[in-house]
């Protein structure tokens, strides 16, 4: 019962923060709301017994990525851009019924999936060894190749980000003459 209360608390927190993410105009407030939502989602993970994912959510998302966003928001001179309103109101009104429809549809799909889902074989293991150990052992045995690929993707993404985002020297035309 206490778990349910905690879950409800984190859920409401997450949803309120998400609404904040899409409604606030100032990007700094938005990133703060996103940070809040990420922390709430980490809490949801804890209620589901996924300690490892929750911890990584806090470490990677809430700290690293959010800080990265903050850096970008503060280091780039956005004020040079033409000021415009922060939202498309027409599209928001238009898409709202569609979004509601999509919500209902996804909910139905999930419910169908819940009734059809089989019981996994790992519950005993998880209860015996703890969730983190089981996740780690399966991640580094069965999904090891995928893990390597993901690390390679991260590396490539990092190099790509550096290449794309670096400041171009304005000597291009002179050099290639």
């Amino acid at each position: 019962m206490v778990r349910l209360l905690i879950f409800t608390f984190f859920s409401l927190w997450a949803i309120v923060s998400a609404i904040g993410v899409i409604t606030f105009t100032n990007p700094i407030y938005v990133i703060l709301w996103l940070l809040s939502a990420l922390i709430a989602i980490a809490g949801i993970f804890f209620t589901a017994g996924a300690e490892l994912v929750g911890a990584l959510q806090l470490l990677i998302y809430a700290v690293a990525i959010a800080v990265f966003y903050v850096f970008v928001l503060t280091a780039v001179p956005w004020e040079k851009a033409v000021k415009k309103s922060s939202h498309y109101r027409t599209e928001g009104v238009l898409s709202f019924p569609l979004i509601l429809l999509l919500y209902l549809e996804i909910a139905v799909v999930f419910l169908l999936g819940v009734t059809a889902s089989p019981e996994g074989q790992l519950r005993g293991l998880i209860e015996k060894f703890g969730n983190t150990e089981v996740v780690g052992s399966i991640l580094f045995s069965k999904y090891f190749f995928a893990f390597e690929v993901v690390s390679l993707v991260l590396l490539i993404g990092m190099i790509g980000a550096v290449l794309i985002g670096r400041k171009e020297n304005q000597t291009y035309e002179d050099d290639t003459r």
């Binding site: 599209e91 569609l98 549809e105 996804i106 799909v109």
Partner: peptide, 20 residues
């Protein structure tokens, strides 16, 4: 971009309705 996202949402919901 947002029109494309809107189109994606619309298309997805239409497909799921069709599926149902």
């Amino acid at each position: 971009l947002n029109w494309y996202a809107f189109g994606m949402v619309g298309g997805l919901s239409f497909l799921v309705v069709l599926l149902f």
